[in-house]
């Protein structure tokens, strides 16, 4: 057995789980609100949401430093009022993870809501359902396969986030060393066995996750469409 420090696994799971939760709630809410409305500049807003998907992670990290760095717009305010610092903490890793995985959740949720038949929601409305009830009992369950795909993609993205995390949270063993960081710094210091272990682990995990989602979605779609 390798002489391993398993803290990167726990930290990665913690960071990915928290960021996925935030991204899921925000992504679903924002995508649903935007799906229901048409307004001037909607395309610009959507393009902004998707921007982290096409930008190099270092650019995202740079932007986050401008916002959350000690002298950043939000960072300096947090430091002054709450004596709280985001850079070089695991919370920084969560924020980086949120920013890079949000577009995946938003895109999946928007596609899921757009593909729904509006008449089903309208049928529920004519039957006396409030917007809240329409969302929970009609929209959410029918969009769930798409939302789940977004959820899993976001989780996987959060788990694998490297560039922006390195810039915002840095590499502090035991505090901000997620699996991708551990891989990078293991290679840097010539610990190839450790690096291989983490590479195999994260690859197997990602592969299993995608397999499961594909299987689950197909099974669920079949349930409502075939006898």
């Amino acid at each position: 057995m390798l002489d391993m420090d398993y803290s990167p696994l726990l930290l990665s799971l913690k960071v990915a789980a928290i960021s996925t939760f935030v991204v899921f709630v925000a992504g679903v809410f924002i995508a649903y609100m935007l799906a229901k409305r048409d307004f001037f500049g909607k395309s610009i807003v959507e393009a902004l949401f998707l921007l982290p998907l096409v930008l190099p992670p270092t650019v995202v990290g740079f932007g986050l430093l401008i916002l959350f760095g000690k002298k950043g717009w939000i960072g300096s305010w947090l430091l002054e009022w709450f004596d709280f610092q985001i850079v070089f903490t695991w919370i920084g890793a969560v924020i980086a993870s949120i920013v890079v995985s949000f577009p995946l959740m938003y895109q999946s949720a928007a596609a899921a809501f757009e593909s729904l038949d509006e008449r089903l929601s309208n049928a529920a409305r004519t039957m006396g359902a409030s917007e809240w009830r329409v969302f929970w009992f009609i929209v959410f369950p029918l969009a769930w396969p798409g939302l789940l795909a977004g959820l899993v993609l976001s989780f996987a993205r959060g788990l694998g986030e490297f560039g922006a995390t390195l810039m915002l949270a840095g590499y502090i063993p035991g505090r901000t060393d997620t699996i991708p960081m551990a891989i990078y710094f293991a290679v840097e210091s010539g610990q190839m066995e450790n690096a291989t272990f983490w590479v195999v682990m994260i690859s197997t995990f990602g592969f299993s996750l995608i397999l499961w989602v594909n299987w689950w979605s197909k099974r669920n779609i079949r349930r409502f469409t075939k006898s």
């Binding site: 089903l120 004519t126 039957m127 369950p141 469409t225």
Partner: peptide, 20 residues
Amino acid sequence: MPARERKIGYLFQDYALFPH
């Protein structure tokens, strides 16, 4: 008045039954 308060029965074309 919102649709939910009108007490209207509406049978949609193709029925719009909730598939789930």
